[in-house]
Computed example of a mutant assay.
Amino acid sequence: MTLDYAAYIASLPRVLAGAGTVFRAADGRVLLVEPNYRDTWVLPGGTVESDQDESPRQAARRETAEEIGLDLEPGRLLVVDWVRGPERLPLVSYLFDGGVLDEEQFAAIRLQEEELLSWRLVAPEELASYVDARMALRLGAALRALADGRGPAELEDGVPPQRSA
């Protein structure tokens, strides 16, 4: 019996991948963007384009350049989050360190007019009032990874997974 590899691949579950970048100001505030297609703010980022053989790191860089006009190489991986949802396929979300931007870089931000309304620097303690609950958890884990130098944080729906004994 031979394996029909194409049929096997077609039978596997589908998963989306997304990548974002955590940019900060010198005072620790986080850069968020306001999309025109949802009620909450987000990080610069978006979907990994698998048809382009794009990696999450490449997607984070591309999306940052498209959305805010800054072509910057992402730093270290801070978070990997397995996100479940009844409204969509499962998502693997990657957050990368974008570093601390200077005044010149902030002044150079140019928003992608088709998708974004504005950008803002938000203090860490205020993030939960701008982003959805899962993103708030993910951002908290990213900021902890930045503070303690460890990581990346492994999350499931924004929280560390329960480990079996």
Score class of each variant (00 low, 15 high):
residue 2 T to E: 12
residue 3 L to I: 14
residue 3 L to S: 06
residue 3 L to N: 07
residue 4 D to N: 13
residue 4 D to F: 09
residue 6 A to E: 12
residue 6 A to H: 11
residue 7 A to L: 13
residue 8 Y to Q: 13
residue 8 Y to N: 11
residue 9 I to M: 11
residue 10 A to W: 02
residue 11 S to L: 04
residue 11 S to E: 05
residue 12 L to R: 10
residue 12 L to M: 10
residue 14 R to T: 11
residue 15 V to Y: 12
residue 15 V to M: 09
residue 17 A to E: 15
residue 17 A to D: 12
residue 19 A to H: 03
residue 21 T to S: 12
residue 21 T to I: 15
residue 24 R to M: 13
residue 24 R to A: 06
residue 26 A to L: 06
residue 26 A to F: 03
residue 26 A to S: 06
residue 28 G to T: 08
residue 29 R to S: 13
residue 29 R to N: 05
residue 30 V to S: 04
residue 30 V to G: 04
residue 30 V to I: 12
residue 31 L to F: 09
residue 31 L to P: 05
residue 33 V to G: 05
residue 33 V to C: 13
residue 34 E to H: 13
residue 34 E to S: 14
residue 36 N to C: 14
residue 37 Y to L: 12
residue 39 D to R: 15
residue 43 L to I: 11
residue 43 L to W: 05
residue 43 L to H: 04
residue 43 L to K: 02
residue 44 P to A: 03
residue 44 P to F: 10
residue 46 G to D: 09
residue 46 G to Y: 08
residue 47 T to W: 15
residue 49 E to G: 10
residue 50 S to R: 15
residue 51 D to I: 12
residue 54 E to S: 07
residue 56 P to H: 11
residue 56 P to N: 05
residue 59 A to I: 07
residue 60 A to R: 02
residue 61 R to I: 07
residue 62 R to E: 04
residue 62 R to P: 03
residue 62 R to N: 11
residue 65 A to P: 10
residue 65 A to I: 07
residue 68 I to K: 01
residue 69 G to N: 02
residue 73 E to Y: 03
residue 74 P to W: 01
residue 74 P to C: 06
residue 75 G to R: 01
residue 75 G to S: 03
residue 76 R to M: 07
residue 76 R to P: 03
residue 76 R to K: 06
residue 77 L to D: 04
residue 80 V to E: 04
residue 80 V to F: 05
residue 82 W to N: 14
residue 82 W to Y: 15
residue 84 R to G: 14
residue 84 R to F: 10
residue 84 R to M: 14
residue 85 G to Q: 04
residue 85 G to N: 07
residue 85 G to L: 02
residue 85 G to F: 02
residue 86 P to H: 07
residue 86 P to M: 12
residue 87 E to A: 14
residue 87 E to R: 15
residue 90 P to I: 04
residue 90 P to C: 08
residue 91 L to I: 15
residue 91 L to Y: 08
residue 93 S to N: 09
residue 94 Y to K: 02
residue 95 L to V: 15
residue 98 G to W: 00
residue 98 G to K: 00
residue 101 L to Y: 00
residue 102 D to L: 07
residue 103 E to R: 10
residue 103 E to W: 08
residue 104 E to R: 11
residue 104 E to Y: 00
residue 104 E to M: 11
residue 106 F to S: 09
residue 107 A to E: 00
residue 108 A to R: 15
residue 109 I to G: 05
residue 110 R to N: 08
residue 111 L to H: 08
residue 113 E to F: 12
residue 114 E to C: 06
residue 114 E to Y: 09
residue 116 L to D: 00
residue 118 S to F: 04
residue 119 W to F: 13
residue 121 L to R: 01
residue 121 L to H: 06
residue 123 A to Q: 02
residue 125 E to R: 09
residue 125 E to C: 04
residue 125 E to I: 10
residue 131 V to H: 02
residue 131 V to C: 01
residue 134 R to K: 14
residue 135 M to E: 14
residue 137 L to D: 09
residue 138 R to K: 13
residue 139 L to A: 01
residue 139 L to I: 03
residue 141 A to N: 00
residue 143 L to P: 01
residue 143 L to Q: 01
residue 144 R to Y: 00
residue 144 R to Q: 09
residue 145 A to Q: 01
residue 145 A to Y: 00
residue 147 A to G: 01
residue 148 D to N: 01
residue 150 R to N: 04
residue 153 A to F: 02
residue 154 E to K: 08
residue 155 L to Y: 01
residue 157 D to A: 01
residue 157 D to V: 04
residue 158 G to C: 08
residue 158 G to P: 00
residue 158 G to E: 04
residue 159 V to W: 06
residue 159 V to L: 11
residue 161 P to Q: 02
residue 162 Q to K: 12
residue 163 R to G: 07
